[in-house]
Design a protein around this nucleic acid. Structure first.
Length: 194
DNA sequence: CGAATTTGACCTGCGC
DNA sequence: GCGCAGGTCAAATTCG
């Protein structure tokens, strides 16, 4: 498998035209989009701005600060689904989720992190299979889902869950973009940029 | 031969 | 309570 994708949930990358895409050969990021995966509300698929290049919809932390509107609720519900004590604690700390859709010829993009595939499933409303990956780095429980858009197979929807507790093995592309990233201000960043 | 992937089974939550 | 859907596990298989 290929070392995969991106957005180390430490992201800050993909900042508009400044984003240096390592896989430009296979992807058309003119339609890259970020989704606020506040599932249940809009299913993460914010169908808008397709015409505007690299529109960042939003990205939020799930670490339910009491101020959060709906996402906190969603998260706690999620957490309860964790089996027993397995990774619930970890998930709490890394309850960070981001989804984005890219127009790509390949399913799995190389984001510098190493992922191990642990599942594959066909989902409703999508003839394509959804693939499940975990960060293969020891102690890092970040997960990723990758699926082709059911409406337009030219697009790949990637969802990251959690935050890497380590740096990207190939910390190359977005070096200076990531360094100053501050979780708590990510929203502001995206809002400002957009 | 060890590591990674595949894939069917199993588990859990949710809606009816 | 039941069935469906999504997510994860783990044995079998494939790959380097």
């Amino acid at each position: 498998m290929n070392i995969s994708q991106n957005p180390s949930p430490n992201f800050t990358y993909f900042s508009d035209e400044n984003f240096i895409n390592p896989f430009m050969d296979n992807n058309d990021f003119s339609n890259l989009m970020f989704f606020d995966v506040d599932e249940g509300v809009n299913n993460g698929l914010v169908e808008e701005e397709i015409s505007s290049p690299t529109s960042i919809v939003s990205s939020e932390t799930f670490t339910g600060e009491s101020g959060g509107s709906g996402s906190a609720t969603t998260l706690s519900k999620k957490e309860s689904t964790n089996r027993g004590s397995k990774e619930s604690d970890q998930t709490k700390e890394t309850g960070h989720r981001v989804a984005f859709r890219t127009r790509s010829k390949i399913d799995v993009m190389d984001d510098g992190f190493k992922w191990r595939k642990y599942g594959k499933k066909s989902v409703k409303n999508n003839i394509n299979k959804r693939n499940y990956y975990k960060c293969s780095s020891e102690g890092c429980s970040v997960k990723k889902r990758v699926e082709r858009d059911g409406d337009d197979a030219a697009y790949v929807i990637t969802t990251y869950e959690g935050v890497h507790n380590h740096e990207s093995p190939s910390h190359v592309y977005y070096d200076d973009m990531v360094l100053s990233y501050d979780h708590d201000n990510w929203n502001q960043h995206s809002l400002l940029r957009s």
